[in-house]
């Protein structure tokens, strides 16, 4: 078991893949690490380790390391018996650790029938998902975020803005220094938190008015919301010495709701 770097508090991902050193897996590990996850790989001492021994090592690693999620390859080796070995390991994991999220790394499109069959063999609420090994590291990270379901203490929105969810504080990074934005508190912080947590788990997803209007007051809740969003933009703009337009940072989408777009530096 070789850790790549220290944890920054996001959690731990165990990688079970016979090609754990391949550049494509390393790229995913690198992305996870940059996002603050700690990654561990089941790394056999003997290079000729058989697929069955991988299974034993993986189950041992889960017991020892108690990861927050597992990234498991479907295919172990070229032998026809090992083509779907990962599904056997998955079955063992879900039997012993039914709540442990597992993202299956497939080396080709699974095809509707096979994926449906695997899903059908699991409990309906089993936290198991499938992703093509050719997926971008960004896609893998997004899928893992939702599968594991944790929201981090601090959400970085691009490189300039940080939200400390626990302390309910907003920081702006200017010249390598963090400046607290005092004006964004109370309802305004809650609006920004709602937008930031949705963006973190599902970029592109709109937050509907119905969800945001609970953080506004007065007879015209939508107008009040619009004012608060303008104030959030102005407060951030003042610290960053920028003027935020309608299409910057928080955008209104076709009278449906709002969406967060990180600032482009």
């Amino acid at each position: 078991m070789v850790p790549m770097s220290d944890s920054r508090g996001q959690g731990k991902i165990l990688i079970v893949d016979d090609e754990w050193e391949s550049p494509i897996v390393v790229a995913v590990r690198r992305k996870l690490e940059s996002e603050g996850w700690r990654t561990l790989a089941v790394e056999p001492e003997a290079p000729w380790l058989l697929a069955d021994e991988f299974e034993t090592e993986a189950l041992y690693a889960i017991e020892e390391e108690q990861p927050d999620g597992v990234l498991l390859d479907v295919r172990f080796g070229e032998h026809k018996d090992d083509r779907f070995k990962g599904l056997g390991i998955l079955r063992k994991i879900t039997e012993r650790y039914p709540k442990l999220p597992v993202l299956m790394f497939t080396q080709y499109a699974q095809g509707p029938d096979r994926e449906t069959a695997v899903r059908g063999s699991l409990k309906w609420d089993a936290p198991v998902d499938f992703i093509d090994k050719l997926a971008s590291p960004e896609e893998v990270v997004l899928r893992l975020r939702r599968l594991i379901g944790n929201t981090p203490q601090v959400i970085s929105i691009g490189s300039l803005i940080k939200l400390d969810i626990g302390a309910k504080l907003v920081y702006v990074e200017v010249d390598d220094e963090s400046t607290m934005v005092n004006e964004i508190q109370g309802m305004k912080f809650e609006i920004l938190r709602e937008l930031a947590t949705t963006w973190y788990r599902s970029p592109g997803e709109l937050v509907p008015f119905s969800k945001l209007e609970r953080y506004s007051e007065g007879e015209d809740a939508r107008a009040s919301l619009r004012v608060r969003i303008r104030e959030i933009k102005d407060s951030l703009g003042a610290v960053l010495d920028m003027r935020f337009g309608a299409g910057d940072f928080i955008i209104n989408v076709r009278d449906q709701g709002y969406r967060l777009v990180p600032l482009k530096v």
Partner: peptide, 26 residues
């Protein structure tokens, strides 16, 4: 839809294109 957007969001972003999605009801 979230899964599809996960897949195409980074590709669209590369060429400065945006993807937005929502559902009614939410």
């Amino acid at each position: 839809v979230r899964r599809i957007v996960d897949r195409y969001f980074p590709i669209a972003a590369e060429s400065q294109k945006e993807i937005t999605w929502w559902s009614e009801p939410s």
